[in-house]
Each structure stands twice: as C-alpha cells, then as structure tokens.
Amino acid sequence: MKRLLPVAVAAMAAFSLGPFLWSALTSLKPADELFRVPPTWIPRSVSLDNYRDVFAQRPFARYMVNSLFVAGLSTILTLAAGAPAAWALARLRLRWSAAIEKGFLAFALFPPAVLLVPLFVAARDAGVLNSRIGVAFVHAALNLPFAVWSLTSFFRAFPADLEDAARVDGFSRAGVLLRVVFPVSAPALAATAILVFIFSWNEFVIALTFLTRDELRTVPVGVAMLSGVTAYDIPWGQISAAVVVTTLPVVAAVLAFQRSIVQGLGAGAVKG
C-alpha cells in the first residue's frame, strides 16, 4: 500500500496534467509547427511570440482584473446568502425544509441559454447592463442552489452536541454559526467557495451579452475574442497561451485561499 502511493499520485497527476500540458506545449510552438504530422511533442523551436501577441492583441491584464472582481464578488454573495439558508435547512427543523431544498434545486435545472433573453431584458430595465456588479449578482443567483445544497449537506454532518454545548455557553444562534460551525466546517466552505468561484470565472454567455464594453470584459470572453485576420482562421497558439497565462494564477490563488481559510478558521476553532 505504502509503495503504491507514489505510483497512484503520479498516475493522477498525469491524468490531470496531460491534456493541459499539451496546450501549454502548443503555446510555445511557432505557427508553422502547429500542424506538423506527426506532431512534435516537444517544440523544436521554442517561441514566446504567442504570449507577446496575446497581450498585444487584447488587454488580458484588464480582463483578469475584471474576472477576479466578478468571480470574487459573486462568491462572497453566494456564500453570504447561501450559508445562513443552508444552516437553517440543516439545523432549525423547519417544517418545509425538504420542500424548500427541492425548490432550490429546481433553480439549478435551467441552462443560461434559455434564461438569457429574459435576464437580458431584466438587466436592461434595471440599468445594469455593462455593470460587473450586475453580472456578479446573476452569477451568484445561478450558483446559489449548488452552494445551499453543498453547505446543507456538510452542516448536517456537523455534530449537534458541539452546537448545543456552545448554546449552553451563552452563544446566540448567529454566534454559534460564526464562531463554532464555520470554523469546524472550513474545508467544506472552502471547497464550495472554490467550485462557485471557478464557475463564475469561466461563465461565458451572460458575461458576453451583459458586458459589451471592452474594458469590462472577462477572461473567457477575452479568449473568445482572440482572432486571426479572417473569421475562419483560429489563432491556435495564442489561444493556448492565453489559457496558460490566465489559468495558472487562478489555480495558485485558489489554493492559497483554501489553505489560508482552512488554517485561519481552523485556528479560530481551537481558540473558540
């Protein structure tokens, strides 16, 4: 068992990294090497032209700031609205809790493509077209069913006696939630936050139609705007470069965030 562990980890890493690595290698190939048959695995001549062109063609730093803002705000909104609801559903013995839970799920069943036109009308009438905050709110609403179900499921596993003990110690319900439940459920909160954040980071249709000013656009829309001179040619190398440049920092940030939230809240729990 012990000896198998490194093999298993290596297999998992190869699975997760493989296709991405192929994109990353593609991003380093000059244009005339992309369609070689048989394909070159390691670029024969490494070129950073694609990286230079990506930033020359589109303001990707700007797009990343926008995406970070939209995804960050929508994650905060989702958790702020979803955690109390999940707590109530898991713990407060609401009479309708099963029905309410299913009601939340019902909202997850409709693809944004069908919602797009009515959402667009609503956003225009509310005057929030070309507003990143507007998009963050829409993403938050779309994410909420998952967040509520996820947190409800984890809160249910939370040992009730710990909570009762805290109540006896004179904590209010909100106090219990903030000081006892959240710290202990930190891994679950972090996992939910990460999934929600990445959903928003990658969402395309809403971001495309709501944000039409270039300085407000998000990363996935920006990638879709990379183009050759004509409509047909796909700037393959540049697209790969854009994906590498925009994804790696996100994964790093997400992990740093997870570590700090788990440690931070975990430390709080020990003290509390």
Binding site: A126, G127, R132, G134
Partner: peptide, 12 residues
C-alpha cells in the same frame, strides 16, 4: 445592486 450599478454605469 441598483445603487452600485448606477454608480459604476453612470454615463454608459
């Protein structure tokens, strides 16, 4: 939502 949107979107 409306207030912040109005602030951000003023002039668009």
């Amino acid at each position: 939502a409306l207030a912040t949107a109005a602030a951000l979107c003023g002039g668009c």
